[in-house]
Design a protein around this nucleic acid. Structure first.
Lengths: 351, 351
DNA sequence: TTGTACGCGTTATCAG
DNA sequence: CTGATAACGCGTACAA
C-alpha cells in the first residue's frame, strides 16, 4: 500500500472514463480572462476585481471545475492531505471504540479546511521502512499518530524529519513530540478512589500494555490513589487491552490474591474478560468483587453486570489533535502542545 | 538572476524540513544514466539492461528516492489512491463492528498493489455536491462505498461518471452497480429457521432500515422462512440499527403482540436494546422469548444472556470488494460482480 | 488590475 | 537499449 518506488508497467486506467474533467484553461476561457487571473480568483488572491471574480465563479460552477490536485501539489509543494497513522493493523485496534472516536473527531477537525484523510495502517515490521519513507517523502503534509508504543521508531524519526505531526496519546519515546492526551493518571485515580470510597480495601489492577503511556499512566493513577489511602499495592497483573488478555490476568490475580475485593481493569474489553473469569470462579460482582473498567465502550453498558468505567473524551481528543495539526500547517493560531483533557467516571452496577 | 533550477517554496510550509527529498534527476546522475532511463528502470520498463537497472536500483536505495506522486499523477492521470466512501459520518457507523472489518479487509486487499486508502466521510447533505465532485474529478482512481441508502445519489451518479466503484452491500438504486454482499436473505432465514426448529411459533422481527438492502433482505429471509413453515408473519417493527431504536421497536412489538415467543432482530446493537426491554417487562430470555441478533458484534458475546446471532464475513467481503476494484483498475483478472458470500449462525444462550 | 512566461518532477514519444 | 524533448495542469514573479 505504501509506495516504495517500484511499480508495475503503466496501464490504461482512464479507459472507459467518459466525463472529461474541466481544466483551469477552460474556466478562464469561459470567464473571458486569462488563466492566471482565473487562478487568482479561485484562490481568493488579493488583486482581483469583484466583477472578474464573479465571472470566474460562475464559470467554475457551470463547468463543475475542481483544481487538479496533482498539478497544484506539484507547484505548491503541498498535498492537502494528512495521514492517520496506525502502527498496528490488527482488527483489534480498528474495532476498538477508541478508533471510531478518533476518526470521527479527526474528520470533524478537517472538514473546515479541505484536507483529505489518508489512512496508513502499518505492520510494525514495516514502520521503520515503508511507512516512514512514505511519510517523509512529501506524500502528506502532516501526520496524526495513534496507538504508539515505546519501541516504535515513529516518534523519534518523525521528529527528526520535521514533518508536522501530532500524537494522540503521549508517546513514551520522542520527548519533544507534540501530542494531545487524556489525563490517564487522573482516570486511574478516579476509578480507584471510587472503589476506596465504596469500602473496598484489597484492590487489584489489570494493567494495559506497559509500553504505552495509557498503560503506565492508568497504573500510576491506581498506585497513587492506593498509596494516599495507605492500602496495599501489590496485586498487579498485566494485560494487553484484549478480552482474552484481561481474562488471563484476572485468573492470575485470583490465584495469587484470594482476598481481593475489587479490580481496576485498564480497559473495558479486558474488564469483560475479567467478568467472565470472576463469574466462573463463582464470585459475585459487585457483591464479592467490584470491577471498574476503562473507555466506556458500547459493551460496557451491556455487560453483566453493567460496567462502571472511566470515559475519555476520545472524539474531542482527536479533534484537538486535528486542529493542532491544522494550525501548524497553516501557521495560523499558536496552539500549544500538549493538550490534556479530563476523563469522567461513569458509575454502573459493577462497582 | 541566475536560476539554479531549484527555487524556494512560495509558502514556507516545509520550513524546518531539513531532509531534501531526492529527485529522479539526482538518481539518474548518480547512476550515470539519463532521466528517462532511470524512470524506465524504476518502473520496470521493458527495454533496459540488467546492468543499468542494477545501477539505478543502487542509486535509488542510496538516496532513499521515492517518486513524487504529484508529478507522476499529473502525467499518468492516475492518483494511485482509492476512496472508501461512508455516506454517514455518525459515530454510529464508525463504531459499528462492520466498519472495522471493512477497513481491515480493504487494507489487506490493497496492500499488494500500492494504492493509498483515502477516507471520505460525507455528511448526507454534502454527498450530492462536495463528495461527488471530489470523486468525479480525478482525485482518486476508484471508490468503495459502504452503508448506501436508497435515496443516496451516489450509486446512480458514480455509475454515470464512469469512476470504477464497488459497493459493499447491494445498493437499492443504481441497478448496474458492481457490488459484493453477504446473502442477507439466507441470513434472515438461518436465524428464523433456528427459532422454528427450537419450537417457537410466534416469531416477531425487528427490521433494519428499509432503505438499505441489508434491512429488506433480512426481513425477507424472516418472511420466507415463516411462510414455508406456515407461521404468521404479521409481527414486524422497524428499527434503525441503533440500540435505542431496537428498544423502541421491541416495546412496540410487546404492546401489539402479547403472545410472541421469539424475536429475530436484524442487528446486535438493536438486539441489546431489545434484551433490555424484555428484561424490564419481566420476560425471561430465552425462557419466555428467544432472541436472535445479527452481526456477531463483540457485544453479542458479552450480552446477558449471550446473544445467538448471524455472523457475516465482513472482512472477506471488504477484501473481495478491494480485489474487485483493483482488478478493474489494472484491467487484469476478469473478476465478476456481484460477489455473494454466505453468513453463519452463531448459537449462544439467547435462543 | 490583468496577462505572459516559466518551472514544479515525472512519464511518454520518438529518434538515435 | 538509451537519450533528448514535449507534455501534464497549475501557481506566481514580473512586465504591461
Amino acid at each position: 500500500m505504501i509506495d516504495d518506488g517500484r511499480r508495475a508497467a503503466p496501464r490504461p486506467l482512464t479507459a472507459g472514463r467518459e466525463h472529461v474533467v474541466p481544466t483551469l484553461d477552460e474556466v478562464a476561457r469561459l470567464a473571458g480572462v486569462s488563466r492566471s487571473t482565473a487562478s487568482r480568483a479561485i484562490n481568493r488572491g488579493p488583486r482581483v476585481s469583484a466583477a472578474t471574480r464573479a465571472a470566474v465563479d460562475a464559470a467554475v460552477t457551470e463547468l463543475g471545475f475542481t483544481p487538479n490536485r496533482a498539478a497544484r501539489s506539484l507547484v505548491t509543494r503541498r498535498t492537502d492531505s494528512i495521514a492517520l497513522v496506525v502502527p498496528e493493523p490488527d482488527e483489534r485496534v480498528l474495532s476498538d471504540p477508541f478508533f471510531a472516536g478518533t476518526i470521527s473527531g479527526l474528520t470533524a477537525a478537517l472538514s473546515a479546511s479541505d484536507l483529505q484523510l489518508v489512512l496508513v495502517l502499518a505492520r510494525p515490521t514495516e514502520v521503520a521502512t515503508r511507512t516512514l519513507r512514505y511519510l517523509r517523502n512529501g506524500h502528506v503534509d502532516g501526520a496524526v499518530v495513534v496507538s504508539h508504543h515505546r519501541g516504535d521508531a515513529l516518534a523519534v524519526e518523525l521528529e527528526r524529519s520535521g514533518l508536522p505531526s501530532v500524537f494522540i496519546g503521549r508517546p513514551l519515546s520522542g520527548p519533544r513530540a507534540e501530542y494531545v492526551d487524556v489525563d490517564n493518571v487522573a482516570g486511574g485515580r478516579l476509578a480507584t478512589d471510587h472503589l476506596i470510597r465504596s469500602g473496598r480495601r484489597r484492590i487489584a489492577t489489570v494493567t494495559g500494555p506497559l509500553d504505552m503511556s495509557a498503560g503506565v499512566d492508568r497504573l500510576r493513577g491506581w498506585h497513587d490513589a492506593l498509596a494516599d489511602a495507605g492500602l496495599p499495592r501489590d496485586a498487579v497483573a498485566s494485560g494487553d487491552f484484549t478480552t482474552r488478555g484481561g481474562a488471563r490476568a484476572a485468573r492470575e490475580l485470583l490465584d495469587r490474591h484470594r482476598d481481593l475485593d475489587a479490580v481496576f481493569v485498564a480497559s473495558d474489553l479486558m474488564a469483560v474478560g475479567a467478568l467472565g473469569v470472576l463469574a466462573d470462579a463463582g464470585l459475585d460482582v459487585p457483591g464479592d468483587v467490584a470491577v471498574v473498567g476503562y473507555d466506556n465502550a458500547a459493551l460496557a453498558a451491556s455487560a453483566s453486570p453493567p460496567l462502571t468505567t472511566v470515559a475519555s473524551p476520545v472524539a474531542s481528543m482527536a479533534r484537538a489533535a486535528g486542529e493542532l495539526l491544522v494550525s501548524r500547517l497553516t501557521g495560523s493560531a499558536p496552539c500549544v502542545s500538549p493538550v490534556i483533557l479530563s476523563p469522567d467516571l461513569v458509575v454502573r452496577a459493577s462497582a
